[in-house]
Design a protein around this nucleic acid. Structure first.
Lengths: 233, 233
DNA sequence: CGTCAGTTTGACACGAATCAAAGTGAGTGG
DNA sequence: CCACTCACTTTGATTCGTGTCAAACTGACG
């Protein structure tokens, strides 16, 4: 397990424990369902590479995307801690996941408090993103929401990948955007079109190119996520 | 610190540590701002009694209520773990809070892994509530949202207070409901009126009486929060 | 060349916001 | 005890944003 840019470094003992804690690695194709709502997962995962998203469904099929998962994020923590999964996770791109056994989570807390703290850190961090999304869905207009979402994803991608490329392609389609913003797909399309007309983004087939992050942030009145070294477990 | 009904019991050592960890107790009136967005809080709190809510503001004043806080909930964990607060907390009723020092949080993780795990448990639990709220804001109609919110608050109140009273009064006004559901106050009023006409609730001055929780849950297509013993820190 | 997933567009309907104003009840001071 | 205020709730009229319906367009793929 190598330390990626932007992540905190482990001490030697921790590194050894994390390696031993690791139960395997799995690879998944885009579109694969990694975790399903209602299922009781035996495992907990760290996303090593690729993009995924978490979502919930209403019985009649309405879908709400809750958040996106990028390298360094934990999958299935809630299921591991509380019981069965209350949401599903689907791959947006090919993924590499590191598998941990749910049953050894208390061992992690007991023997490596620093890592236990990291898990809490990640949970708190997820909570902050959800707060931000909630503000968006509840109080921003369609344009502001779309601008916020794209700026948010852009920033997350940059913070995880290092700011390698100046043009960034988000691996999502307009249905994903619609289900994230709580809008219909038609209205989402018209909204994205307006952002494109303003030279803020360019929409491609199954991908979005971000042209002007600052313009998007200004439009959404969003300051961005505070920068912090993330722990990687 | 007594163990409330519905909470897990501590071992003797944990109990001793929690007592020593406690830095004091404060009392706040309804309407008081406990934590403010942008501030760096030195403390972390456990809510011992009363109701509060967390919210975020957009620069132009639009407010979104993120979640409600009931006895047993942690306040300011994010601020303690990551840095400055990204949301504010305001009291809905007189509160009793137990104060902890932010700086001693790592000590808690180091010496009492069980308690560290509890903190993570609480964070994961908050995350699940936020997921549910996000689904509501994104994909439920105004009626469904209102029904969900009231059923949700009712269930939380019951799970915390023991199911003492069959009629439960929620200490909120319609502005709170509007800012939680992402609706205007006028439309919120009309929506609540419809719920009242269907004999699901009765609206009183600054309070809501819940008449038919199951009817509300059916209307919102919501199954309720899975029941679990909450840890109390 | 046809199919299919995804994007785009226009017409229309509907739900929620806004504007405006009145009603209610608790608390306050004369 | 009565007027007055203030916060909160209620209602009706109108506007506007977003959803729905329908259909065409595009490019990848077989």
């Amino acid at each position: 397990m190598r330390v990626m840019p932007g992540f905190r470094a482990f001490g030697p003992e921790e590194l050894h424990f994390v390696s031993s804690f690791k139960a395997g690695e799995i690879v998944a194709e885009a579109g694969t369902t990694i975790l399903a709502e209602g299922k009781h997962s035996e495992n907990l995962y760290t996303l090593l590479s690729g993009w995924a998203f978490r979502y919930k469904l209403l019985p009649d099929g309405r879908r709400q995307i809750l958040n996106y998962l990028l390298p360094g994020d934990l999958l299935g923590l809630q299921g591991s801690i509380i019981g069965e999964m209350e949401h599903s996770v689907e791959a947006l791109s090919p993924l590499v996941l590191c598998v941990f056994q749910r049953s050894r989570l208390d061992e992690l807390f007991a023997n490596h408090p620093g890592l236990g703290f990291d898990v809490t850190w990640l949970a708190a961090s997820e909570e902050r993103m959800l707060d931000e999304h909630l503000l968006s869905l509840g109080r921003r207009t369609a344009m502001e929401r779309a601008a916020y979402l794209i700026a948010f994803l852009h920033q997350r991608a940059v913070s995880v990948g290092g700011s390698l490329a100046k043009t960034l392609y988000l691996p999502i389609n307009q249905q994903h955007v619609a289900d994230t913003l709580g809008l219909s797909i038609v209205h989402t399309n018209k909204t994205l079109r307006k952002l494109a007309d303003r030279q803020l983004i360019r929409w491609l087939d199954r991908a979005c190119e971000v042209l002007d992050v600052e313009g998007l942030m200004r439009l959404a009145d969003w300051d961005g996520l505070p920068a912090h070294k993330r722990p990687l477990i």
